[in-house]
């Protein structure tokens, strides 16, 4: 029994194979993702790791807020989980858009698996940490991811590359729109979770971040003693 399980190919066994296939934008890989068992688990794993990697890359904000080490890693982990949720919403909206815009009827699970693995380039998201060159790296990774998504969608349906793009864009727009409409509550909840995990109220606005950095410096108070430019006595008139 045990031996049979070990010899059966699963998406977990062939995890790195599949990843490198996706990185090479190989259409055959996308097909095998959907044929292999445990594909769903593996794809969620990719998204989770990608989320973690990317949050690590964006960690500077946590540092400015002076989050302690343990809390830092917890925050990264929680952010990765939230990333997965966000991802699933996006897949859902993309799936809806694909069905509505191009009347493509795909099983949702297949889309989840495919798009999940398309996030493979973002596994390198931690490279964003590299100073100055990190930002261009992120741009390259994002384009790469987008290409993988388009290829993936193309592989499991008969959508052309541009149509696949349109689906993604449509899905993204729908997601943005729904986040604006009912997003305030969601954003509040996620912020609360993150703040709770981080142990401090995280400040993310650029202006306030800048102000934080000035704390601890002996900045002179804004002229508490204004020179008396109007003269001493208010009732001196005959000048």
């Amino acid at each position: 029994m045990l031996s049979t399980v070990a010899t059966v190919d699963t998406a977990i066994n062939r995890f790195w194979d599949l990843i490198s296939g996706v990185l090479c934008l190989n259409p055959a890989t996308f097909e095998s993702i959907n044929n292999l068992p445990l594909g769903l688990v593996a794809s969620i794993l990719v998204v989770l790791l990608a989320g973690m990697s990317q949050t690590l890359g964006q960690g500077a904000m946590l540092f400015i807020n002076r989050v302690k080490p343990l809390r830092f890693f917890l925050s990264v982990a929680v952010a990765a989980v939230l990333f997965v949720f966000n991802y699933n919403f996006w897949v859902l909206s993309t799936w809806l858009v694909a069905g509505w815009l191009f009347s493509v009827s795909l099983p949702l699970v297949e889309v989840v698996k495919t798009l999940g693995f398309s996030y493979s380039p973002l596994l390198l998201g931690f490279l964003m940490v590299i100073p100055y060159f990190g930002m261009p790296i992120l741009i390259v990774l994002s384009i790469w991811t987008l290409l993988a998504i388009a290829k993936g969608l193309g592989a499991i349906s008969d959508l052309g590359i541009w149509q696949a793009f349109e689906c993604c864009l449509g899905g993204w727009l729908v997601l943005q729109f729904s986040q604006r409409v009912l997003g305030k509550a969601i954003a509040n909840i996620t912020n609360k979770i993150i703040d709770w995990v981080a142990g401090v109220q995280l400040i993310t606005e650029a202006n306030y971040l800048e102000q934080m950095l000035y704390s601890g410096l002996p900045i002179p108070p804004v002229t508490s003693d204004v020179p008396n430019l109007l003269g001493d006595s208010p009732k001196q008139s005959n000048e």
Partner: peptide
Amino acid sequence: GLLAPFEALGWWAGW
């Protein structure tokens, strides 16, 4: 490159 920012970041965060 990956390690470079952490001296400054950790210093500020008080690690």
